[in-house]
Design a protein around this nucleic acid. Structure first.
Length: 423
RNA sequence: GGAGAUGUCGCAUAGUGGCCUAGUGCGCCGCCCUGCUAAGGCGGUUGGGGUUUGCGCCCCUCGAGGGUUCGAAUCCCUCCAUCUCCGCCA
């Protein structure tokens, strides 16, 4: 939810943000007009209501004929109050509906769309497979040799884009997620296993029911949504609450399965485990003071670096362009790993600074020193997902079809150093 | 899934149609009293919106949303949550 007061005072800033995102800047004026109408209607209602209250007192004290006369008058007033209230309610929901369509104001994100990201840094260099004397296989072929994934049976049981992780694949998955959880706990995060189905208001509050709502599974019969990330459950966790951030940011590490319809991804990453409907993820989530949000964003990115170091793959960090930001994000950094079989980078982590946008929608505040309340900032960042296995397998594959387990993961793989092909 | 009970301003409670502008106790904050401490006294203490230079004033908020009524914490409906019992079941 956009800050309406900010919008009234700085409409140009919001228009510029809308334009940068490729959204309609005219929406700003529609919201302003609707808000003005809302205020007018509310004032009218409040005045009538005050009259009604004072007349009510007279009625209560009056007797006999005098009371009958007052009753007649006040009946008429009651009808007006009712009409005014209906008008006020309608204006409120209209203005809210419009205001909900405005995405968060971008925060020094690069201009442009999906292709206009800025590379912040690159870590590690892709292996020279030619020098090693072999062509890298893609992760599906390597995984099949290891019997680490069963893609055909995934499709048989659940359909396209569902896979089984089997044997060492399953172990790698659990080990990776454990490594991420361990790191998070050691960094002071509160570990959480969160619900994966949430109510509409929670899904709406986190900003996922906007433009990209067709990415989300909905259980119509129960009016619940399947989450695409535990961010949803972690943001909703403190909805409607006033938090104490006196001891610094409140940080949670959520582990959950995540579900995505991949509706807009027809034909993209159809092979293997890169883009599937269901995966697991450890997600960092932070509630912090607005003035601390940009620093916190860098800290989250730092923890992602720390975790990525454990799997020892080449990757780069990109600063996502405004047009490619999610509704709630003011700025987003993705870490993308090198994918040898396709000679490209693909996303492993994503950290977003949502400033006070989610907190407004979910009504999450903190108390200031003066005793007043104010909205706080929320941020999130990936610590590990099932997709990382693709990067591990492809980057650490050997000529003989085995895969070297990166040193950082061995403690979570019973010390195993190499995954050998299974005959 | 069935039956019943409950939901009040941090906590506990009072409140069955108008004097509720939601009382009281605890906790908390300020002040007073006081060698010190305890006890005591006075005032304040849900949150949001509007208005005013300011003091203040107005509206909304009794789990949420509707309805009845001139008037709702109170009556009715729907939803949500909690508890008890029954049924079913990893």
């Amino acid at each position: 939810m956009i800050d309406l007061k900010f919008l009234r005072e700085n409409p140009d800033v919001v228009r510029a943000s809308q334009t940068a995102r490729g959204d309609d800047p005219g929406l700003v004026d529609a919201v302003l007009a609707a808000d003005e109408q809302r205020r007018t209607n509310l004032l009218a209602f409040e005045n009538l209501r005050a009259q009604q209250k004072s007349m009510g007192k007279q009625v209560a004290q009056a007797k006999g004929e005098e009371k009958q006369a007052l009753l007649a008058q006040t009946k008429e007033l009651a009808a007006q109050v009712k009409a005014a209230q209906a008008a006020a309610n309608e204006a409120e929901s209209t203005s809210e509906e419009l205001a909900y369509q405005i995405a968060n104001i971008t925060l020094s994100a690069p201009p442009g769309g999906e292709e206009d990201f800025v590379v912040v840094e690159t870590r590690g260099t892709p292996r020279d497979f030619a020098a090693e004397g072999f062509e890298p296989q893609d992760h599906v072929d390597v995984a099949q040799g290891l019997k680490a994934m069963d893609i055909e049976r995934g499709a048989k049981v659940s359909g396209a884009r569902f896979i089984y992780l089997t044997g060492v694949g399953a172990q790698l998955e659990i080990g990776l997620q454990n490594a991420a959880m361990d790191q998070a706990v050691r960094a002071g995060f509160i570990p959480m296993v969160t619900p994966t189905m949430v109510r509409p208001e929670t899904m709406r509050g986190t900003g996922f029911l906007g433009a990209h709502s067709d990415e989300i599974y909905r259980l119509e019969r129960d009016d619940l949504y399947l989450v695409g990330t535990s961010e949803v459950a972690l943001a909703g966790y403190h909805s409607g609450e006033i938090l104490d951030l006196g001891n610094g940011p409140l940080r949670y590490a959520g582990w959950s399965s995540c579900y995505r319809r991949e509706a807009g991804a027809a034909g993209r990453d159809t092979r293997g485990a890169i883009r599937v409907h269901q995966f697991n993820k450890v997600e960092m989530f932070s509630y912090c003071r607005p003035e601390d949000a940009e620093d916190e964003h860098q800290r989250l990115l730092g923890w992602e670096h720390q975790m990525l170091a454990k799997i020892d793959v080449p990757y780069r960090v990109i600063d996502t362009a405004a047009g490619d930001l999610g509704t709630s994000a003011a700025r987003k950094f993705d870490c993308e790993a090198w994918l040898p079989s396709q000679n490209r980078y693909f996303e492993l982590t994503s950290t977003s600074n949502c400033t006070t946008f989610q907190a407004r929608r979910l009504n999450i505040r903190e108390r200031t020193e003066t005793g007043a309340t104010r909205y706080l900032a929320t941020l999130n960042g990936t610590l590990a997902t099932s997709r990382w296995i693709v990067a591990i397998i492809e980057n650490h594959q050997q000529k003989d079809g085995s895969v070297v387990v990166p040193a950082g993961l061995r403690p979570y793989m019973n010390g195993v150093e190499v995954l050998e092909p299974v005959g």
